[in-house]
């Protein structure tokens, strides 16, 4: 018992460090990536390739005065950024990076991650509501309707995977996919199950993780050309910093989950040297795609987003669920 507890505590510390490091350097990667796409060099002054930029930005954010506007609900206002960051970090604890590197493996790992992911929506709601800013309130209302709309297809797709692999244990899901890329869930020729729609499911899941993490083209919560800065309009200093880190931590979680569910986790595509490097390679490729998408597309509208979810993604994922259920029965 006490050993598990210690395990978890150590894991949480490592998770915080990992999340913070990721957040910092993903910002750097995003800025560099965006710059390259726009044919500029991006941050390149501080350190080689601008690699000292993120810590300096962190120092700058921390050095700033924490302003709390007079009219806000102080407690909620302070809790919200923490709430945006904390669930993301907690989710890291249960994500298996390789067969050995996992904070605490749980049989209901996938549920845990989803449960924590939906808390992110609450953080946005609280932030917007407590800010007493009209733009923030509008943004948080958007964020909530968006979170609801996109958690459904995401969960349905996850259930499809759970049905195929027969387990809710993230470790188990990966183990069910070992042995080369043709065993991955994204491909239809999984042994004994010829579901042609798995690629579509992957796309649905990917789109949903974009929407869940409030990334462009679904960044309606912080649509700066309409809502100034959305739910974090009133936040400065580290309050803003936490939201920022939370966003990137969530991106890492989303990419990890996609990797685990569809891309075989730490499994090597050719069955060679499975290990944590494959997992990291896969999630960073996915994150690069996130960044790439963000700097390519305009933002959707709120109704376009809801239409996409309710009219396309949910029926499609439901259909795939039924199909998978049928196929499982047949084979």
């Amino acid at each position: 018992m006490s050993l598990t507890l210690l395990n978890v505590i150590v894991a949480v510390f490592i998770a915080i460090a990992f999340a913070a490091l990721n957040a910092a350097y993903l910002v750097w990667a995003e800025r560099r990536g965006a710059a390259r796409i726009q044919r500029r060099p991006g941050p390149n002054i501080n350190g080689p390739f601008g690699l000292f930029q993120p810590p300096l930005d962190g120092v700058k954010l921390m050095a700033k005065q924490l302003l709390i506007p007079g009219d806000v609900d102080k407690i909620l206002f302070m809790v919200a950024p923490v709430l945006a960051m904390a669930p993301a970090i907690t989710s890291f604890v249960t994500i298996p990076f390789s067969s050995h590197i996992v904070g605490h493996n749980m049989h209901i790992g996938i549920l845990l991650v989803f449960a924590f992911a939906s808390m992110g929506g609450m953080a946005l709601l609280l932030a917007g509501w407590s800010s007493r800013n009209k733009y923030s309130v509008m943004s948080s209302v958007r964020a909530v309707s968006q979170a609801i709309a996109y958690e459904i297809p995401m969960l349905i797709t996850a259930i499809t995977i759970v049905m195929i692999t027969g387990t809710t244990d993230l470790m188990g899901i990966v183990k069910a996919q070992t042995g080369g890329f043709w065993h991955w869930n994204i491909f239809p020729f999984k042994a004994g199950l010829f579901n042609p729609l798995m690629l579509m499911s992957f796309l649905i899941f990917f789109i949903c993780s974009l929407a869940e993490t409030n990334r462009a083209p679904f960044d309606l919560g912080e649509a700066e050309s309409e809502l100034v800065a959305g739910f974090h309009t009133e936040y400065g200093s580290m309050g803003f910093g936490l939201f920022f880190m939370g966003e990137y931590a969530n991106i890492v979680i989303g990419a990890s989950l996609t990797t685990i569910l569809f891309l075989g986790g730490w499994d090597c595509p050719f069955g060679l040297f499975p290990g944590v490097w494959w997992f990291l390679l896969k999630i960073y490729l996915l994150i690069a795609t996130f960044i790439w998408i963000r700097w390519t597309f305009p933002r959707t509208t709120i109704y376009g987003l809801l239409n996409l979810s309710w009219k396309i993604l949910i029926p499609a994922s439901l259909f795939n669920l039924l199909l998978t259920a049928g196929l499982l029965k047949v084979f």
């Binding site: 990536g33 710059a35 390259r36 796409i37 726009q38 044919r39 500029r40 060099p41 790439w292 998408i293 700097w295 390519t296 597309f297």
Partner: peptide, 21 residues
């Protein structure tokens, strides 16, 4: 159409920068 757009930004990504520092 989304993939076409991503193709364009992909090409731009590997083009030289044009700004003056």
């Amino acid at each position: 159409s989304l993939f076409v757009g991503m193709g364009i930004t992909f090409r731009e990504f590997f083009s030289p920068t044009v700004t003056v520092q």
